[in-house]
């Protein structure tokens, strides 16, 4: 078995609204091996971004806080680090790129300055060295005019270029883990492909791990080694990418895969999942997916299924796979 880089165990994250705590993540479990690309998928609001922000410890300015579980990175529990220790991880060991390349860069600061910030903090380089490093990073992400771009402002660049800059910035300190939260959602299809290609290529060069958050199962199929499916703040299924697409186990995953249109599809209606994601403050008692599940059974309404290990080391939280009903495995 390969070496684990990140291990998220029973992660619980809450927000406080009107003095009431609302739990959004209810014990999220998954891990990322070194050099592995993990896809994190699920409908909007299921807690994908929050999982990544929990790993990064980026709660400043929100009421969010981790209230349970731990996040082990290279064996070290990130939830026990203090502010300064955590800050030294961010941008150095774990870097992140976001969905909005338009707004993720500071509009009043030159690209070069923004790129040099993490380089100077984490790599202890002087200004001149940092600048050289910044230029070389821009070259690395395929920006040809890197000497000029360094003196330009974000509004002078296209969306794709800005996302390249974000990638250059994230990669500049050679992180072990790159978290990409919908990195291409805001881009044109052709640019999307280029950016993904670039990420894949850099990932292989540096033997870095990637946590790729996306809605797009096509991207998952292309980029990822393993997939983690989330629903309502929980991991409902985890499997190797081929196994998952070949034979999705969880009814929710089946619904997700079913809702991707395939070429040559004769059906005139997509098999999308009926109903809506439940409200975090008003969750059903048993399986959170039960109100929308086509295969719901009596037990699903009473007890929440726990994660069960199936063949090929895949995990699934669904009563359908609990053959000795009521007793759970793993």
């Amino acid at each position: 078995m390969s070496e684990k880089l990140l291990q998220v165990e029973q992660l619980q994250t809450d927000f406080t609204k009107d003095k009431r705590k609302i739990r959004i993540l209810h014990g999220v479990n998954f891990h990322i091996n070194k050099g592995e690309v993990i896809g994190l998928v699920g409908e909007s609001g299921c807690g994908k971004s929050l999982t990544s922000l929990s790993i990064m410890g980026l709660f400043k300015g929100t009421s969010g806080e981790i209230t349970g579980g731990n996040i082990r990175f290279n064996g070290q529990d990130l939830t026990s680090l203090n502010v300064n220790e955590m800050r030294k991880m961010r941008g150095k060991q774990i870097a992140m790129i976001f969905q909005e390349p338009m707004t993720s860069l500071n509009p009043v600061m030159k690209i070069g300055e923004q790129l040099m910030e993490p380089i100077r903090i984490h790599l202890n380089l002087n200004k001149k060295q940092a600048k050289e490093h910044a230029v070389s990073m821009l070259k690395k992400v395929g920006i040809a005019r890197s000497d000029e771009v360094i003196n330009e402002y974000p509004h002078q660049l296209s969306g794709g270029m800005r996302q390249r800059v974000m990638i250059a910035m994230a990669m500049s300190c050679n992180p072990n883990l790159l978290i990409a939260d919908e990195p291409t959602t805001a881009l044109d299809v052709t640019i999307q492909a280029q950016i993904l290609e670039l990420m894949k290529q850099l990932q292989q060069q540096e033997n870095m791990s990637i946590l790729l958050i996306t809605h797009d199962l096509g991207i998952v199929a292309e980029m990822c080694d393993r997939v983690v499916v989330m629903y309502a703040g929980r991991v409902v299924e985890e499997a190797d990418v081929f196994d998952l697409f070949e034979k999705p186990k969880h009814p929710y995953t089946q619904g997700l895969i079913g809702s991707v249109p395939k070429i040559g599809d004769k059906r005139d209606k997509l098999d999308s999942i009926k109903g809506n994601v439940p409200d975090p403050s008003d969750m059903p008692i048993g399986c959170k997916f039960a109100p929308r599940c086509t295969q719901v059974m009596p037990i699903c309404l009473e007890k929440e299924p726990t994660s069960m290990m199936l063949e090929n080391e895949r995990l699934c939280s669904c009563w359908l796979y609990d053959h000795e009903r009521g007793e759970t495995h793993v």
Binding site: L58, K60, G61, R87, T103, M169
Partner: peptide, 15 residues
């Protein structure tokens, strides 16, 4: 302070 680039700054490890 709500802007995305502020989050980027924090994600870089800035003080």
């Amino acid at each position: 302070l709500k802007a995305d680039f502020i989050r980027t700054g924090r994600a870089k490890g800035l003080k």
